[in-house]
Design a protein around this nucleic acid. Structure first.
Length: 552
RNA sequence: GGCCUGUUAGUCAAGUGGCUAAGACGUCGCCCUCUCACGGCGAAGGCAGGGGUUCGACUCCCCUACGGGUCACCA
């Protein structure tokens, strides 16, 4: 069989040699050890939270080694395409501060970065395989294939196009030509040279050394529409784009034997692989009337799992990234503890520290991490972020914030900047609830004083406090005066003394503080009252106290 | 079902033959304290089960159970 003749018959449209592309995409000029990674999604849906995993790994690996991180859109299957998904992907990751060096929009010397634009390239390489006798056309119809499958299932053998079951592998040139002339559609199949009885050892950078079975199936390289399957595209693209490290989900592990063969057939250098496990979520499943909690794969279909929806809910990108880092590298938290203010880029990301098993998305942990991240920001930084967030997601609050930035910053500065900063909120959406009472339009008395306190005591306390209140007092003087108020209404001014003999007093200085706090902030809990009062200013403090007194 | 792979507390996890099995989140308690938020101290809670190998197994091997992945002209 003259394979060159067959190749010409099958690919009359291909007019280039693979050497043309090899010259067009020479090895990248990068420093020693630089990694080239890629994120290669199919634009079939919106990016979900789990997508951050591989992306962050790729990004860190590439950028901390002085390499390149690019985005390649895998849209070889037009049937599944979703309008607008491509832009959403880029936007979503930009929101999280993840930048691609090369992509459809960023450009780059190794494009096109959309697989549907690389059709000619794949066909050229496919033709090469044919001309070397490593691939062949298959005219089997869908019906024939499903019949084959049924037969194999009935016989309890591994289903697939392999070994004795192949029909089109040894078609003669004349038979092929006859089919082509008759206009029969065909797929191009890989002529596998493997044997499923052979095991090969393979070292995955995440999974470690694993034993896999050699591929003996003649997989499809080109679909009948002339477009490549994932496998061919993977080999050709990652070769020509000079990817050094392929980071992908572990669902690809099972097709790895095939990929290894393919790379060998092309005489391509095999990249390093990192197969990472899926992020799981806890889901409630009802089974026989019993509700159980089970681990589920985080999927695109999950409501609210979309990356951008986290932003809407108020999660800060910095926090989400920080959380994902703690999951990706087990020593990240330790590093963060030692370097609280260092940029995340300073952390030495290590493939070795990645977990081989899947982890569960833990919202509580995310919140804890978030609180820590947000607590490290300065008042100015927090203000800028909350203002930006609320300008989109809470316009009413945004108006209040931005009408007096200095005022807002003074509020946000409470308890911030020291060794033990306050950690009041994990989400931007919680800020309004935290500081709302500083704004008259949001202020309302939502908590009430327990019934066991006499109204007269409360009124007297308020009167006494107003009488002595001087906004120029320092913290100690201010509190001493509250103690005086307590004493003035017969309450115990000293907490320790009260605890020693609680029966001797109707209340204590803490109770007096509570009266004032509820009157001024509307709540039982608030940040430091001295700071609160200073920021509110004497006239508003007094008027709130008076107003509260009148409701008693 | 075949093949691959995983299983350390509720969750995330250190750990590679010699430990009383780190740490973090969560939970509970105490302390600090004008409340809260911090912070500090402490408690409960774990090597899926069974066999080997070994002087000794969380660590190595086998079996079982339970997860996950995959078996397309989808990626």
């Amino acid at each position: 069989m003259d394979y060159n003749k067959l190749a010409d018959l099958l690919f009359p449209d291909v007019d280039k040699e693979t050497s043309y592309y090899e010259d067009l995409y020479p090895p990248r000029n990068l420093p020693e050890g630089a990694m080239v990674t890629r994120f290669a999604p199919s634009p079939t849906g919106f990016v979900h939270f789990g997508g951050l995993f591989p992306v962050l790994v790729c990004e860190r690996l590439a950028h901390q080694s002085g390499g390149v991180f690019y985005l390649r859109i895998e849209d070889t299957d037009s049937k599944r395409e979703v309008e607008g998904a491509e832009k959403d992907i880029i936007n979503a990751f930009e929101t999280f501060g993840i930048k691609f060096d090369e992509s459809v929009v960023h450009g780059g010397s190794y494009g096109p970065y959309r697989q549907s634009d690389r059709r000619d390239i794949y066909r050229c390489y496919a033709k090469k395989l044919v001309s070397e006798g490593k691939a062949y056309p298959c005219f089997c119809t869908a019906e024939e294939l499903s019949e084959l499958r049924e037969r194999q299932e009935a016989a309890k053998v591994v289903p697939g196009y392999y070994g004795e079951y192949v029909k089109c592998r040894d078609l003669t040139y004349e038979q092929v030509k006859k089919n082509i002339d008759a206009g029969k559609p065909f797929v191009l199949r890989f002529k596998s040279f493997g044997d499923s009885r052979n095991k090969i050892k393979f070292t995955d950078l995440v999974k470690g050394t694993i034993e896999i079975t050699e591929n003996d199936i003649d997989h499809v390289l080109l679909k009948s529409d002339g477009m490549p399957t994932y496998h061919l595209a993977h080999a050709v693209d990652d070769h020509l784009m000079h990817t050094t490290h392929v980071v992908r989900g572990e669902e690809w592990l099972s097709s790895l034997p095939y990929h290894i063969q393919l790379f060998r057939a092309f005489d391509f250098r095999l990249p390093k692989y990192l197969h990472i496990s899926q992020l799981m979520r806890l889901a409630e499943v009802e089974e026989d009337g019993i509700v159980k909690q089970v681990k589920k794969k985080l999927s695109k279909r999950d409501k609210g799992a979309g990356l951008t929806s986290y932003i809407g809910e108020g999660y800060a990108p910095e926090c989400v990234i920080e959380y994902v880092m703690t999951l990706l590298n087990s020593n990240f938290e330790e590093w963060r503890k030692a370097n609280p203010f260092a940029p995340i880029e300073d952390f030495k990301f290590s493939v070795k520290k990645m977990s081989a098993s899947g982890s569960l998305f833990d919202l509580k942990k995310l919140e804890d991490v978030s609180k820590n991240v947000l607590s490290r920001f300065s008042a100015d930084e927090i203000y800028e972020r909350v203002a930006a967030w609320s300008s989109v997601y809470d316009k009413e609050f945004n108006l209040l914030l931005t009408s007096d930035p200095d005022y807002a910053k003074r509020i946000l500065a409470i308890g911030r900047g020291g060794n033990k900063p306050r950690k009041d909120f994990a989400l931007y959406s919680e800020v309004k609830g935290y500081m709302g009472f500083f704004y008259d339009s949001l202020f309302e008395v939502s908590d009430s004083i327990p019934d066991n306190f006499k109204k007269e005591d409360i009124k007297n306390a308020i009167d006494l406090f107003i009488k002595g209140y001087d906004e120029n007092d320092d913290r100690q003087t201010w509190f001493d005066k509250i103690k005086d108020v307590a004493a003035g209404i017969g309450y115990c001014p000293d907490m320790k003394a009260y605890k020693a003999a609680p029966d001797r007093y109707p209340g204590h200085v803490g109770d007096v503080s509570m009266f004032l706090r509820i009157a001024v902030t509307g709540r039982m809990n608030s940040p430091d009252m001295y700071d609160v009062m200073n920021i509110l200013g004497k006239s508003r403090v007094v008027s709130r106290l008076e107003a509260f007194k009148n409701t008693l």
